[in-house]
Design a binder for these strands. Structure first.
Lengths: 338, 338
DNA sequence: GTTAACGGTGCAACCGGTTGTACAATCGCA
DNA sequence: TGCGATTGTACAACCGGTTGCACCGTTAAC
C-alpha cells in the first residue's frame, strides 16, 4: 500500500525534475513539434516519475474548456431508466467520448431546486456542452442554454420547436418503427391485433402507436390498446387481462422486448402457440429478444448509434460547428415470433 | 427574444462599470465586511446590469475547488434505477447540496472505458468529492481515490473493507429491516411464510433475508424464497408461481412495495383476502404503499435521509473532516395488510 | 568570414477569478 | 493641530496550466 498523496504534483515540479522550463514541459507533454524528441523523453520520464496529471482547474482556465459534457435529464431518473434501453444510449455517448478527453456526467434536473442549481452551473460555464435526453418545449433551462450560447443537443423530436437554429437535434423515427412492426403483422396476414405499450404519456409510445394505426387502421381497435410499464412482468400481467376478456386476436404488438417476453410467457401458459396461433412483435432489439422462445421479431431502435451521433454533434458544436438535425432510422429484425 | 450572448461578462467589466477595481468588485460580490454598503450596492447593480456570473473555471482555480461532486455509479444505471427508490436517495443528496453551491453529477462507470475516463478526471481533480452509490470491494477506482486523497463517501456496507480510515460510509441496516418485518409477521402469529425478494445478488436482499431468517428460522423454508425483479409485475408473476405450487402459506414478505402490490393483486385474483387469509409486508415505504388496498404495512428505509447524510459528510470532508461511518435505522410502518 | 535560416528553449503574458498587504482618506481624541 | 486608529479601496501576487514571441546556438549558404 502506497501512502495517500494529498498534494498533487504540479507542472513546475515536473519541469524542475526534467531541468527545463514550465513552458517546455507543457509543450513536451502536449507533444508539440517544436520540442526535440530527446527533451520530450526526459520530460515524460519526469512526469511519470512524480505521477503528474495536469490539474483540471488550471487547464480548464487556460484552454477555456472544462472537458466535461452534461447529460441533462429533466424527468426523474427512475422513469427514464425503467426503460433499460436508455443505458445503451448512454453507453453510445460514453463510447464516442472515450475517444476524446471529454467526460459525460448525468445531471438530474427534475425538481425546481435541481433546475436552479443546474442553471447556475450552466451560467458559470461548468460544462462545455449539454446533451438533453428528455427535452420538452417548456423547459426554462433550454431558454437559459440558448441565451448563454452553450452547445446543446436535444435527443427527441420536439414538435416545431423554436430552437432549430441554435440547438442540434437527434431522434429516431418512432412512427416509422411502428409502421415497420405493423407492416410485418399485415404481411403475415394478421387481422385482429392487440397492442401492449409502455406508459401512455411517453412520446415514443404515442408516435409508435400512430405508426401502427397508419398501417392497420381498424385492425387495431382502441379497445385493444393497453398501456403499461416496460417490463416483462407488466407484459405478463397485461396479457392475462386480455386473455380474461375472451376476445379474438392473432397478433400482439409490444412496446418493448421485455413486455413481449412476458406476453409470450402468458400466451404459452394459456396454451397458445407463438407464432402458430398468435404473432408477437417486440421493440428495441434488446438482448432478451434472442433468448425468447421463439426468438423475437422486433424493431431495432439504433439507440447506441443515437448516442454516438449526439456525442459527435456535441463535440463538433464545441469546435464551433452549426447546429444540425439528424433522424435515425428504425429497422425490422426478422426472427421467429411472427 | 434576447440575442444569444456568446461572450460571458468578466469581473473586470463589472468592476469597470461600477468604477472600482477587480478586487473590490470581487469582495463586494462575495459580501466581504471590508467593503462599504454603498459600494456593494453599486457593484451588485453593475453585475446585474451586465448579467455577470463568476466563471467556474477562473473561480475553481482561485479557490481550489470545482464545487462539483461526483455521484459514482459502478453498475449499469438501469439496474440501479430499476429500483425506483434510488431516485429518492439522489433527491436527498441534491436537496442537501442545494443549500450549498455544490452540484452533484452522476458518473457512470460500469465499463472499463468509462472507468478509465473517470479515473483520469479524478486524477485531474475535476471533482471535489465522490459519493459512491454502489461500492464493491474490488473496485480499482476506490484504490485510485484513496491514493489521490479525494474525499469519498461509500453508500452501502462493505464487508470489512480496508478503507475505513480513509473513506466515510453511510448505510441503512437492512438486516434490522428484515428483522422488523419478520417480527411483525411473528407477532401476528403467522407461521408459514413466503418471501418474494429482489435480485439474489443484491447485497440488500441478502442482508434482509438474513434478518428474516434470524427471526423466523424454520417458518421461512428455503423453498419459499423467490428472487425476482423489483416491480409489481414481478411480484404478480412470482405469486402466480407460488399459488401454482399449492403450498400452504399465511404470510408474504416482499422485497419492495411494488412487489407487494403485485402480490396482493395476484392473491385477490386467487380469491385470497389480505390480511384475513394472508399477511403481506412490503419494503421501502414507497408512495404505492398507501395506495394499495389494503394499505401496506412496510419497512421504511430512510433513503432520503441517507442522501442528506452522504451529502453532508462529503461537504464536511471537503472542509477537512475525518472520515466517519453512520448507520441509518429502519422503521416499521404499520398499516392494514398485516 | 559574415549572415540568413532554423530548430530548440525560456521569458512573460494570459485565462478569470481570490486574497494578503499597502496605502489613502476620514475620524476621534488629546 | 497632530497623532493613531479605523475604514475603504487598489495594487499585485497567486492558483496551474497554455502560448506568442524573443532569443540562443548551430549549421548552411554566399
Amino acid at each position: 500500500m502506497t501512502q495517500p498523496v494529498r498534494t498533487a504534483p504540479t507542472l513546475a515540479e515536473v519541469a524542475a525534475a526534467a531541468g527545463v522550463s514550465r513552458s517546455t514541459a507543457s509543450r513536451a507533454l502536449n507533444d508539440s513539434p517544436r520540442i526535440s524528441e530527446e527533451t520530450k523523453k526526459r520530460v515524460r520520464a519526469a512526469a511519470k516519475e512524480v505521477n503528474f496529471v495536469p490539474n483540471a482547474r488550471g487547464r480548464a482556465l487556460a484552454v477555456g474548456r472544462t472537458e466535461i459534457i452534461a447529460v441533462l435529464v429533466t424527468e426523474p431518473l427512475s422513469e427514464l431508466f425503467s426503460d433499460p434501453t436508455y443505458s445503451e444510449f448512454l453507453s453510445g455517448i460514453t463510447e464516442e467520448l472515450s475517444e476524446s478527453s471529454y467526460l459525460p456526467v448525468i445531471l438530474q434536473a427534475s425538481s425546481t431546486h435541481e433546475r436552479n442549481r443546474a442553471r447556475e452551473h450552466f451560467e458559470r460555464r461548468s460544462f462545455d456542452a449539454v446533451i438533453d435526453v428528455s427535452p420538452y418545449k417548456g423547459s426554462e433551462l433550454l431558454e437559459v442554454l440558448r441565451e448563454l450560447g452553450v452547445p446543446t443537443v436535444l435527443c427527441g423530436r420536439l414538435e416545431g420547436h423554436p430552437y432549430r437554429d441554435v440547438f442540434s437535434t437527434v431522434y429516431s423515427d418512432d412512427e416509422e418503427g411502428g409502421r415497420f412492426a405493423a407492416l410485418a403483422m399485415k404481411g403475415r396476414g394478421r387481422k385482429d391485433i392487440v397492442a401492449v405499450l409502455g406508459p401512455h404519456d411517453n412520446p415514443a409510445v404515442v408516435d409508435r402507436l400512430r405508426g401502427y394505426r397508419a398501417v392497420l387502421g381498424e385492425d387495431l381497435p382502441d379497445a385493444n390498446v393497453i398501456y403499461t410499464g416496460w417490463n416483462s412482468g407488466d407484459g405478463y400481467q397485461a396479457m392475462h387481462q386480455i386473455l380474461a376478456r375472451k376476445i379474438a386476436f392473432d397478433g400482439v404488438l409490444c412496446g418493448s422486448d421485455r413486455i413481449a417476453a412476458g406476453v409470450i410467457t402468458a400466451l404459452n401458459e394459456a396454451g397458445l402457440s407463438v407464432p402458430a396461433d398468435v404473432s408477437v412483435v417486440g421493440f428495441d432489439d434488446h438482448e432478451i429478444a434472442t433468448r425468447c422462445v421463439p426468438a423475437l421479431t422486433t424493431v431495432r431502435q439504433p439507440l447506441r448509434e443515437e448516442g454516438h451521433m449526439a456525442a459527435n454533434i456535441a463535440l463538433d458544436m464545441i469546435k464551433g460547428a452549426e447546429p444540425t438535425t439528424s433522424v435515425m432510422h428504425m429497422q425490422l429484425i426478422q426472427r421467429d415470433s411472427l
